[in-house]
Amino acid sequence: MTGERPTRHVVVMGVSGAGKTTVAREISELTGMTFADADAFHTEEHVALMRAGIPLDDEARWPWLRRLSAWMADRCAEGVSTVLACSALKRSYRDVLRQGPPSLDFVHLDGPVEVIRERMAARAGHYMPASLLESQLATLEPHGPDESVVVLGVSGTPGELAAAAVARLGLRPAMSRPPGSTRP
């Protein structure tokens, strides 16, 4: 045994507009885990489809999910813990993500459709139109009892949700900076 701490890997999941990216960034700030947004792994073609209001089908999603899984596996091999903002709506999608690191926890941000729809309508510059919310809700599959998932309601602030996720997952807070400071 080398004495190194094992890495931890978390996916903050849910439909578009639930706050995945914001909460995942907050978790990264609290813990020092490396953050990534799954949206950055989409091809330009897929972004154009979604921007046009066309949901991606499973065939389009498989390579994207494999890239995300490989990214987490690569960070794991480097000894780096990660937090990823990713919709991960179906069990089969979560199963692909679990093929990357040796263990993976999920934080599912869930809440009233009206609240999420309002958030989507209020945000500027995002390619995912509010019109795709219904397709995401139809795709969302509840987690199974064998999946490591913490469900949090979207009514809290991002900071409150991140703190709850860190506590419920038993993640270690970053020691290199005082609370409330930001990373460079």
Results as ranks from 00 to 15, higher is better:
1 M>A: 13
5 R>K: 07
5 R>C: 05
8 R>D: 11
10 V>E: 10
12 V>Q: 07
16 S>F: 09
16 S>M: 06
16 S>G: 15
18 A>F: 02
18 A>C: 15
19 G>F: 05
20 K>L: 01
21 T>K: 06
22 T>N: 02
26 E>F: 10
26 E>I: 06
27 I>C: 01
30 L>I: 00
30 L>R: 02
30 L>G: 02
30 L>V: 06
30 L>D: 01
32 G>V: 02
34 T>R: 14
35 F>L: 14
36 A>V: 06
36 A>T: 07
36 A>L: 10
37 D>R: 06
42 H>V: 00
42 H>L: 00
45 E>Q: 08
45 E>Y: 09
47 V>Y: 07
50 M>T: 01
51 R>E: 04
52 A>F: 05
52 A>T: 10
53 G>S: 01
54 I>N: 10
55 P>S: 12
58 D>F: 07
58 D>R: 05
60 A>H: 14
60 A>W: 00
61 R>D: 00
62 W>L: 02
62 W>N: 00
63 P>T: 01
64 W>R: 04
64 W>M: 00
65 L>W: 02
65 L>D: 08
66 R>H: 14
67 R>K: 14
67 R>Q: 11
69 S>N: 02
69 S>F: 02
70 A>F: 07
71 W>C: 00
75 R>S: 01
75 R>N: 04
77 A>P: 09
77 A>N: 11
79 G>Q: 06
79 G>E: 09
80 V>P: 01
81 S>N: 04
83 V>T: 10
83 V>D: 11
86 C>D: 09
86 C>W: 09
88 A>C: 07
90 K>H: 12
90 K>F: 08
91 R>G: 10
93 Y>A: 12
94 R>Y: 08
97 L>M: 11
98 R>P: 01
99 Q>M: 13
104 L>S: 11
107 V>D: 03
108 H>E: 00
110 D>Q: 13
110 D>G: 04
111 G>V: 08
111 G>T: 06
113 V>Q: 15
113 V>F: 06
114 E>Y: 01
114 E>C: 04
115 V>H: 08
115 V>E: 11
117 R>I: 02
118 E>W: 01
120 M>N: 12
120 M>T: 07
120 M>I: 09
121 A>Q: 15
121 A>K: 12
124 A>R: 15
125 G>E: 04
131 S>A: 15
133 L>A: 10
133 L>C: 12
134 E>C: 10
135 S>K: 05
135 S>P: 03
137 L>W: 10
140 L>R: 11
140 L>V: 04
140 L>I: 02
140 L>N: 09
142 P>K: 03
144 G>K: 12
145 P>R: 14
146 D>S: 14
146 D>H: 13
147 E>Y: 05
148 S>L: 11
149 V>R: 10
149 V>L: 12
151 V>Y: 04
153 G>P: 14
153 G>Q: 13
155 S>M: 08
156 G>W: 11
158 P>S: 02
160 E>W: 08
161 L>E: 08
162 A>I: 01
163 A>S: 11
163 A>I: 03
165 A>K: 05
166 V>K: 13
167 A>P: 06
168 R>Q: 15
168 R>L: 10
169 L>S: 08
169 L>H: 08
171 L>G: 01
174 A>K: 06
175 M>F: 13
178 P>H: 09
178 P>F: 11
179 P>Q: 11
179 P>N: 10
180 G>N: 07
180 G>L: 10
182 T>R: 15
182 T>Y: 13
183 R>P: 05
184 P>A: 15
